[in-house]
Computed example of a mutant assay.
Amino acid sequence: MTSDTPAPDRTPRPAPDPLTAYGWDAERAAVFAPYAADGLAPGRVARVDRGRCEVVLAAGPADAGPDGTVTVHADTRPARTGGDPEAVVCTGDWAAVEPDTPAGPVLRALLPRRTRFLRSTSSARSEGQVLAANTDHAVVVVSLAVELDLGRLERFLSLAWASGSRPLVALTKTDLVPDSTYLVADVEAAAPGAPVLPVSAVTGEGAAALAAELAGGTAVLLGQSGVGKSTLVNALLGAEVRTSGAGRGNVGKGRHTTTARELLPLPGGGLVVDTPGLRGVGLWEADEGLSQVFAEIEELAAHCRFHDCEHHAEPGCAVLAAVDDGTLSHRRFESYRKLLRESAWIASRTDARLRAERAREWRRREAAGREMYERKRGKGHRKAF
């Protein structure tokens, strides 16, 4: 080393704040200021599983994990929140935590969510459930190893758009399909406005492009069991972090392996929430999402003769005309109508005013039906004996 070469700086530097890698920024710091004044610590919920809640803290207690994760006491049961799904803590939430209590760290409050993926559960009560919060990307994972269900894809995308996150579609297991060109085209037609990326964890196809799309934000992976979410997470992380199930037979179906929603940092920046496979995904507050997924139908509806056209049998219906001439596929139109009906039914169950309006509408239709029947029979008609 020459005399004019500067000596290396050996001044100890503090470890980087764990929350920075988890998305902490000036906007969240400003929102958290009142909680800081009360002596609470900020944290991000990294995992919720069977009543347990793990939170990443900027400065956790001595028994915190190397990434700052601690187990905190939090009520994760919807029944304790008056049935309000928005009040239940979930993976991705930003929280105010009291780190030092005799019982250990306690979650005291949740910060307002920028986005949240909210679905209706498959229970008869049609309760809402937040699957992930504060996500920037909603990745709908679809396997090409089985027959495409475009209706289910449109359902997932409707909720993804409604969540406030940016949707994209990851088509997995492309290595099992000799030519996926026509399959990709079908998915693109069902997912207007959402990037569609074919990926393979075996060959590495599309993995770099997907990682680039997700860098710098928080993404949630959504899909049925066996579509390859855990394998995709391992490809993004560059390590076997998630256990993936082997395929069954030669049909390319994986096994359900993920049991909890967990927030995982990506090596190139950003985070991903791996979720368990979803058997059923009911719509919840998804009207805006439906308008995005079926944008071409909404555009056609603007040209119907009647502004309140229901696209059933009304004269001058531009939507039905498009179905008749083949401009709009019958499958897509029926999917749109089905999801609209479901969305209206869910809303009617959760809003007393809408329930009353729905009842009045049914009574109006019944009265109109009876009137039409009487007209067909003819006034004054009496059965002769």
Rank of each mutant, 00 (worst) to 15 (best):
Q129K: 14
G128Y: 02
T121C: 05
S165A: 15
T115P: 01
L144R: 00
S120D: 12
A138W: 08
E188F: 02
S122R: 15
V187S: 01
A170W: 00
D149F: 02
S163R: 01
E147K: 05
V139S: 13
L150I: 08
A162H: 04
V142Q: 14
A189Q: 05
R152H: 09
H137E: 12
G193E: 10
E154H: 04
A191L: 07
T121Y: 02
E147S: 15
V187Y: 00
R119N: 12
S126A: 15
G128I: 03
A160N: 07
A132E: 04
L171C: 09
R166I: 10
T174V: 14
V141Y: 05
H137I: 03
A160I: 01
P167A: 05
A189P: 07
V140Q: 02
T172R: 02
V146C: 06
L150S: 09
V177W: 04
D136W: 06
A162D: 10
L157W: 02
E127K: 12
A160M: 07
A194G: 06
L183Q: 15
S158C: 11
L148S: 07
V187T: 02
G151Y: 03
A190Y: 00
A194P: 08
L176N: 11
A185Y: 06
V141G: 00
L150D: 08
L159W: 02
S120K: 10
T172P: 08
A160K: 00
P167Y: 06
S158Y: 14
L157S: 04
D186C: 13
R155F: 04
V169M: 09
